[in-house]
Amino acid sequence: MHRETRRPDGTRIHYTATGPATGTALTLIHGWGCDRGDFDPIVKHLPPEVRVLAVDLAEHGDSRSDRGTWTIEEFARDVAAVLAAESVDSAVVAGHSLGGAVAVETARRLPDLVTQVIALDALHYLSLFPAQSEEDVQALLQPFREDFAGAMRGMVEAGSPEGTDPSLVDSYIRKMASVRQPGGLLALEGLARWDMDAALREVAQPIVLFAVRSIITQEAIDRYGDRFRIELVDLGSHHFPVESPAETAKLLAGEL
């Protein structure tokens, strides 16, 4: 069922509710420039008794907002608003890419409600997730300010291992390049300014990362391997949830 909740600041968050109305909710959070529709094929492969909430973050998909604050913490409040609207008292929060950061932040915000975090090729990109200097933040954002489409192509191609179907790469580029502005660029800035290490110090819930084997670096494994469980997968590119929905559903179901 397609539903909507409105936050006090006027932000309208759209989401899809599937499965029974009670029980632990598997909450799915898309990546930057994407939307909840990416999870539709995955939901079809999940057991029917699983309660699923797939969320469009502000200015992604159908959700709309003219707020002035674009941080990972604010996106976590989008998710928290959906959980409140659905009267959820227990949730596993799973996020892809930027959604993984939002999932961690949601767990920090709701320690008594979120029982586990599942990250789908998220959290391990060292140019994004550890705290960045202001110089590094500006260096990351400058190409997007000068040539958004070109920088977007470079980002998608960097997450597409050799052998990735070129038509899929092009489809990701088209989709992500059309993210609504200025929210899209401001959301990327919010991600670049997020301090994951600080968040991890406060999150006690277990975290598992399903990372693309050919993309993750040993440096990232060494840095975070003792903080969350890292499982390497060979299911496609950075966007493997779209490319391998049945296998991704199996990973998610195995954690519930």
Score class of each variant (00 low, 15 high):
G95D: 03
H96C: 04
H96E: 11
H96K: 06
L98V: 08
L98I: 10
G99H: 02
G99M: 01
G99W: 02
G100F: 05
A101G: 13
V102K: 07
V104Q: 03
E105S: 14
E105G: 04
T106M: 13
A107G: 15
A107R: 00
R108N: 08
R108V: 09
R108L: 09
R109S: 14
L110S: 14
L110I: 02
D112A: 15
D112Q: 15
L113S: 06
L113V: 10
I118A: 06
H124C: 12
H124L: 14
Y125L: 06
Y125G: 06
L126H: 09
L128Q: 12
L128V: 11
L128Y: 14
A131K: 14
S133E: 00
S133I: 12
E134V: 11
E134P: 04
E134N: 12
E135C: 01
D136P: 00
D136I: 05
V137D: 03
A139G: 08
L140T: 06
L141G: 00
Q142F: 04
Q142E: 15
P143K: 08
P143R: 04
F144Q: 07
F144Y: 15
R145F: 08
A149T: 15
G150P: 08
A151Q: 12
A151E: 05
M152G: 05
M152N: 15
M152L: 06
R153K: 09
M155T: 14
M155G: 10
E157W: 02
E157K: 02
E157I: 07
E157T: 12
G159H: 11
G159K: 09
S160Y: 09
E162A: 14
E162C: 00
T164V: 01
D165I: 05
D165M: 06
D165L: 07
S167Q: 04
V169G: 11
D170R: 15
S171P: 01
I173V: 14
I173H: 05
R174K: 13
R174C: 01
K175F: 10
A177N: 13
A177S: 15
V179L: 13
V179M: 12
R180S: 03
Q181A: 12
P182Q: 10
G184H: 05
G184I: 05
G184N: 07
L186G: 00
A187F: 02
A187P: 01
G190Q: 10
G190T: 08
L191E: 14
A192L: 11
R193E: 03
W194D: 05
W194G: 00
W194M: 09
D195R: 06
D195A: 09
M196S: 03
D197Q: 10
D197M: 02
D197H: 02
A198K: 13
A199W: 03
R201W: 01
R201G: 13
E202F: 01
V203R: 10
V203G: 08
A204F: 07
P206L: 14
P206F: 04
I207V: 13
I207E: 02
I207R: 07
I207W: 02
V208K: 12
V208Q: 11
L209I: 00
F210T: 03
A211R: 04
V212T: 10
I215V: 13
I216W: 11
I216H: 08
Q218A: 07
E219V: 03
E219W: 00
A220Q: 11
I221W: 05
D222R: 13
D222A: 14
G225Q: 09
D226K: 15
F228I: 12
